[in-house]
Amino acid sequence: MRNKFGERVIETAIRFSGFAIIAFVILIFLFLLKDSLSLFRVYSFKRFILEQKWLPISEPPTFGIVPLITGSLLVTVGAIVICVPVGVATALYIAEIAPGYLKTILKSLIEVLASIPSVVLGFIGIIWLGPFVKNTFHLSTGMCGLTSVFLLAFMALPTIISISEDALVGVPRMYKEAAYGLGATHWQTLWRIVLPAASSGIMAAVMLGIGRVIGETMVVMMVTGNAPIMPKSILQPLRTLTATIAGEMGETVSGSDHYYALFAVGLILFIITFVLNFTAEVFLRKGRR
């Protein structure tokens, strides 16, 4: 009898933790939604989403999220363009080419890479990468989109590498045997059989990488220049959704329109990352089938 009771306690505790997670996600969403709606009562949602200017302390203020979304999108796309090919190639090397000892070293190095605090990367961006970008492209400032693109790509790499590598290692041995048996070379086997078989896992890795990049705050706050204007190119200072919230939240009056506008920005960000993670999950499931 006692055993049975103990088991039920544990079971209930575990079930509670599971449901708690779901509850937290829903509560955070409701919380963001509630405060965002406070803005949309005085400032139309349509203007918020379409207006091309973010001037929160002008009189009257303009809360246009377009430049911020554009800024986030620009650095995200830029980072993905760099880190996806590099990340997948690295994963392929670790999973299929590197000899055993190197594999171990590389994998633990990538874990170290993942554990570098983003503020340290931002630091490197300010004192080294920023000036480098400035001199290379002859800009007036190195604090611009491109500098953060490099750092963000670097930050997303560990995620992309380790999840892609899992997907590649998970490709059944028999596919490879079949390919070799038909006379395929190592490279043909990798390119035509292993990569396609792992593609859904790799897609998931890319999605999670994007999620990581778009949600990153510290690095972009330190090196993008934080100018909330429509960026015309990646070589200009810009500002992302995350940096806007982090930078302005401390200066607003609690309960003001500006305050609620930042929550609305948070809501948009939440929806974007939610969709990305959800898509990644769909791809991972498809891969497991």
Binding site: Y175, E177, A178, A179, G181, L182, G183, A184, T185, A197
Partner: peptide, 21 residues
């Protein structure tokens, strides 16, 4: 030339190993 050899000497495996394509 292992590639040519395996082309000339085909192999059928224990479990049907068709590609997921």
């Amino acid at each position: 030339d292992v590639v040519a050899l395996r082309k000339n000497v085909g192999m059928v495996f224990q479990r049907p190993n068709v590609f997921d394509q």
